[in-house]
Simulated assay, not measured.
Amino acid sequence: MKKLLIVFLSILFVVSAFSFKAIMVTDTGGLGDKSFNDGTWAGVKRAAAELGIDAQVIQSYEQADYVSNLTKAAQEIQKEPDGGIVYAVGFMMTDALFEVAQQFPDVYFAGIDIAPSSDNVPPNVICFLFKEQESAFLVGYIAAATTRANKVGFIGGIPIPPVERFRYGFETGVKVFNDLHGTNVQIIKGYTNQFSDPKKGKDLALSQFAEGVDIIFHASGACGNGVIEAAKEKMVSLVGKDDLKSILEYAFEKGGYFAMGVDVDQDYMAPGVVLASAMKGVDTASYLGVKWAYEGNWTPGIHKLGLAENGVRMSPMKYTKGLVENRTLAELAYLVTLIKKGILTVPETEEALKSFRTPNIVFPF
């Protein structure tokens, strides 16, 4: 019995000696945003379950928490015999990530939506960036094709680069539809200037609806939960019922009020009211970062993901595809091939947006 106990303890020691941990530090939006942070955490959890490792979250409540939380996470990783990886989530954590990563060269760090100020990325850091403009182009085209008011809205959180890339893509999608179909769909734009207050998102959405908008695309984190709530309230007030069948029947005949989700598939949050979601693979990026660090397949630097890399996409429109004409969906599928081939380039800067001209596109059907 004593020998068995010694063998068991030896095995236990070997297992614990090769422990590996993944720690995600949220931005101020935090878990429960049903968007950016939740999507990233889903990827970390998926990797942890597959690899049999520990995964933890450290919540940031204000920007002043970033350096201390990343430092705490790195110190926790250093306690692990086999190391681990720290995830910094969001553009606002850029300075904090590079400050802390330099202090802990033996710890892997990964940043979501974080870009270095130069090409000199520390060897222990991976940065995942996305071509948000490409997925936003898709929902912009859908919005322009679906609106009955000829006026759609965009609500951003803080106008940081990822949010602005969503706006550029959305505006481009509307413009391309207008140019190809001779329409004049207008865009109203606004910002909540934060990511964590659904009430601000709802108030701004209601304001845009009052200005005649019938579809709003948000890129505003948890503020977008309020945008979706506002669209649902407006739609239910028209329909008189809140069940999916009644909403779809009314929308198919008369239109209504809609929201468009962001980062993850948010269509489920208000079935029939969330028309589509512009998704980016934050879950894929966070999964890959953990896996690469664990397996030793670490390539530091920037990894940029777009349609061609399957890093961004549009939701499958599980509830609402029937509200969009088949020809529009076919056109969109063809435009995706042009984007992947580089024939249609969706602007990723304000300057490129201003100078953008719709190329000569002829649909083969």
Rank of each mutant, 00 (worst) to 15 (best):
N120W: 06
Q133P: 01
C127D: 13
P123Q: 13
P81F: 11
Q103W: 03
E99Y: 09
D82Y: 12
P161Y: 09
F104E: 07
I187P: 00
P162G: 01
F130Y: 13
I85T: 05
F154S: 05
M92Q: 14
L138G: 01
S207I: 05
Q133G: 06
A88F: 11
N124C: 11
E76T: 14
K202V: 07
V176Q: 06
Q208P: 00
I85A: 08
P116A: 12
F177M: 06
F130C: 06
K72L: 14
E132F: 10
G157F: 09
D82A: 15
K151P: 06
A96K: 07
P81W: 08
V89K: 00
A73R: 01
S196N: 14
P123K: 14
G173C: 06
E134K: 07
K131Y: 12
T147G: 10
L138P: 06
Q103F: 05
M92D: 11
G84F: 11
G140A: 12
N120E: 15
I126Y: 00
A101Y: 07
G169K: 00
E164Q: 15
A143S: 14
G182L: 08
L70K: 03
N150E: 14
L97E: 10
G83I: 11
P116I: 02
F98E: 02
V163Q: 03
D197K: 12
V185I: 14
I142A: 03
E80C: 04
E171L: 13
A145T: 05
I114E: 02
L204W: 01
L204S: 02
K151Y: 05
E80L: 03
G182T: 09
I187K: 07
D82K: 15
V125R: 08
G169V: 12
T183K: 14
F104Y: 15
D179M: 04
L206F: 08
V86L: 04
L129T: 15
Y191T: 04
P198I: 11
V100K: 02
L204K: 13
K189R: 12
D113T: 04
I126W: 10
P122T: 07
Q186Y: 00
E132T: 04
V107T: 04
Q133M: 05
